[in-house]
């Protein structure tokens, strides 16, 4: 399982909002509010774990603007299920720590 850093969780939440939609790195970086230096390693890790799949943008949409194709990422069915579970786990853990913290105070 990929490391569930806070930024990773934010990326997964954004992807889960519209699981069928393909997004490119810079777009995710803007949506999530995470620096580009952080977004690509997260995407690489999630893809390595099989939670995401990526493919090149179709030629017709970039040929005209004269730049190479962007890489589009989409969450997989397995990835979505695993992400929902992982997010729930880390939320539960977060809640527990918070309650304990309150009790301890």
């Amino acid at each position: 399982m990929p490391r569930m850093t806070l930024q990773t969780q934010l990326v997964l939440e954004v992807l889960l909002r519209e699981p069928d939609r393909q997004r490119y790195g810079l777009e995710l970086s803007d949506l999530v509010g995470v620096a580009t230096g952080t977004i690509y390693p997260i995407l690489a890790r999630l893809e390595q774990a099989g939670w995401l799949v990526s493919e090149w943008e179709v030629p017709t949409s970039y040929d005209s603007v004269g730049r190479p194709p962007r890489r589009l990422y989409r969450i997989t069915a397995d990835g979505a299920a695993a992400a929902v579970a992982a997010l729930a786990r880390s939320r539960a853990r977060h809640k527990r720590t918070w309650i304990l913290g309150v009790e301890g105070a």
Binding site: T36, G37, T38, Y40, A44, Q48
Partner: peptide, 18 residues
């Protein structure tokens, strides 16, 4: 320029992911 700097710091972590 900012994008390039970000990507530079991403390179070792991407190597690590793989």
């Amino acid at each position: 320029a900012r994008f390039l700097l970000g990507v530079l710091t991403a390179v070792p972590r991407i190597a690590l992911a793989h």
